[in-house]
């Protein structure tokens, strides 16, 4: 199968993720959408790796996974502490500093 199709899929997933970040209100869901974007990047890396016949892209996919895992650790810690003090994970409620 032509690897270009995987790139279209990656772009589609990335767009879905980006749209989700912009329109969803729950911090956890927003964060999941960011993770979807990172996974779309991984798909693109692996597809390009196949097209070029070198393994760089596949190695990067592993790095991205590790970075995404680290981001989950930090992100969930922050979101959970916000939820515990406000009893809400909505990003709209967090507006103490709005002018």
């Amino acid at each position: 199968m032509n690897p270009v199709n995987y790139l279209y899929l990656a772009a589609l997933l990335f767009t879905i993720g980006a749209t989700g970040v912009l329109i969803r209100r729950n911090a956890i869901v927003v964060f999941m959408c960011v993770e979807l974007m990172l996974n779309a990047c991984n798909l693109a890396f692996v597809a390009f790796s196949r097209m070029h016949g070198n393994l760089d892209g596949q190695i990067i996919a592993f790095f991205t996974m590790v970075v995404a895992a680290a981001e989950v650790v930090v992100g969930l810690a922050i979101i959970v502490s916000l939820f515990r003090s406000r009893h809400s994970a909505s990003v709209d409620d967090a507006s103490l500093m709005k002018l």
Binding site: G17, A18, A27, M37, C41, S81, L82, A94
Partner: peptide, 20 residues
């Protein structure tokens, strides 16, 4: 905490764009 959540979500969003 609110600042951290904003910074984190927007920062992660931006770094996903960087990665793409």
């Amino acid at each position: 905490q609110e600042a951290a959540v904003k910074y984190f979500l927007l920062g992660a969003f931006a770094s996903a764009f960087t990665l793409f």
